[in-house]
Nucleic acid binder design. Structure first.
Length: 428
RNA sequence: GUGGGUGUAGCUCAGCCGGUUAGAGCGCCAGACUGUGGAUCUGGAUGUCGAGGGUUCGAAUCCCUCCACUCACCCCA
């Protein structure tokens, strides 16, 4: 109950069957994203601290108070990555993106770290699955990214999710918008709570995230981000919406959607789920046309998203694991173990993709069948989703005859099969 | 960083106005059934009652401190 060592706060162990669901989600991401020409990128978990303060934004909470930062033995400041886009951009620059084919399409899946108080759907170590399309300025790239995202969510069984969309001005327009927002709010600042009053000066865009009804009332009639887009960005944003309508991607616009990372320009979007409690965003993304230049590279346009894998798995409408057939090799007694293992190896070579598990508990036939039946019925702790169980009985009699008895549990039918036939796919 | 809730068996929890050897369900193991099924019945194992201190003849129960987990705020995936 109180072990000597426990997982560090905000981190957790993923065991079967949970871990198998994560693997299945990642495998579906690989299939869907790969189908759009995205290859996987794996970047280091550790980066120099400055990469994040430059990209994510000096004033954001992530950089301000949520990073796992430490000095290494040579006194360099390193940080456990709080998000993955900065690392992808850094890698692209470092590996000479100007000599790579464009657009460069990359996806990733991996652990991220933020030092926050854990709560439902929020952990200090969490996983994100994301994708970045680099090098295409046009609205078609925003649209393709969103269409791909939707394909992915549909493959996972989500049917009525809707994307929330907005635009954020980059560069000078962003400052102009912040000023206009301050001017609107300041006369009414008395009505705001302490936190929100502080935000007016420090980071007024954050006011839109406030859950305080008073704050929401104050924001009625406030200036909107669209008004501060330059003409080019405005038509880009209009084109994205047109693309989405033509692709049949359901979306709603919300002027209150302002993403927390500083590097977004023009398009921003997110998807929320009702069943997640307070931490309800399952993914977010947008266009970041200035980030490459901000990090000292050429001015490359890019667009991407990040999905909170832990939150995604939590609200999955179905089971992402492919159902598998289980061949349950059941020895009558420990004397049959060597023969049972030979049988199991033969089965594995003849039935790729199936689970071939040998019961080494020595519990005997009656108990073994009970266990096999429980797995077929959906034993909650079994790692895999099982579509059918075939109990392969191997006792002294079978050993002597060099045969096995195969019983298909759902059909309650059993037949004797010679050992030599197991390496070939047998009929069901 | 701030506030609330909860810590008792592998899991879910009861017991908490102090009173003998600390309980239930589920799960696990064994038997009924020495070679064939999710059932049933019988039996069994498993606990530093989160930790430390205090009050008391006596503490899972009352008090204090600490720790952990959890939900919410802040913020985000």
């Amino acid at each position: 109950m109180s072990p000597a060592y426990r997982a560090v706060k905000g981190t957790r162990d993923l065991l079967p069957p949970e871990s198998e669901k994560y693997a299945a989600v990642e495998s579906i991401a690989r299939q869907v994203f790969g189908g759009y020409g995205y290859g996987e990128i794996r970047t280091p978990i550790l980066e120099s601290t400055e990469l994040f303060s430059r990209s994510v934004g000096e004033t954001t909470d992530i950089v301000h108070k949520e990073m796992y930062t430490f000095l290494d033995r040579k006194g360099r400041s390193l940080t456990l990555r709080p998000e993955n886009t900065a690392g992808v951009v850094r890698a692209a620059l470092e590996r000479g993106i100007d000599r790579m084919p464009r657009p460069l399409r990359l996806w990733y899946a991996g652990e991220q770290f933020r030092y926050e108080r854990p709560q439902k759907g929020r952990y200090r170590e969490f996983r994100q699955i994301g994708a970045e399309m680099i090098g295409v300025p046009g609205s078609a790239s925003d649209a393709e990214v969103l269409v791909m995202l939707f394909d992915f969510l549909q493959r996972l069984g989500f049917i009525d999710l809707s994307v929330t969309l907005n635009c954020v001005p980059g560069g000078a327009g962003r400052e102009a918008f912040a000023d206009a927002l301050r001017s609107h709010v300041r006369p009414r600042a008395r009505r705001l709570g302490e936190d929100d009053r502080r935000r007016v000066e420090e980071n007024p865009l954050r006011l839109f995230d406030s859950k305080d009804p008073e704050t929401k009332a104050v924001l009625e009639g406030a200036p909107t981000t669209v008004e501060f887009l330059d003409p080019e960005a405005a038509s880009h944003y209009a084109e994205v919406k047109e693309f989405l309508r033509e692709s049949g991607i359901p979306f709603t616009e919300s002027p209150a959607l302002v993403r927390g990372l500083d590097y977004y320009t023009v398009t921003v979007f997110e998807v929320v789920s009702k069943s997640l409690g307070a931490q309800n965003a399952i993914l977010g993304g947008g266009r970041y046309d200035n980030l490459f230049a901000d990090l000292g590279g050429p001015p490359l346009p890019a667009v991407g998203f990040a999905i909170g894998e832990d939150r995604l798995v939590e609200v999955l409408p179905g089971d992402p694991r492919e159902p598998r057939e289980l061949w349950y090799v059941l020895p009558g007694s420990p004397e049959d173990f060597p023969y049972a293992m030979a049988v199991a190896r033969a089965l594995r070579s003849g039935h790729a993709g199936a689970v071939v598990e040998t019961d080494l508990s020595g519990r005997g036939f009656a108990k073994g069948f009970t266990r096999a039946s429980a797995i077929l019925a959906g034993d909650a702790d079994y790692p895999f989703r099982v579509s059918e169980v075939r109990v392969v009985s191997v006792g002294s009699q079978e050993r002597a005859e060099q045969t096995v008895k195969i019983k298909t549990l759902s059909a309650r039918r059993e037949e004797a099969v010679p050992l030599a036939a197991l390496t070939r796919r047998s009929r069901t």
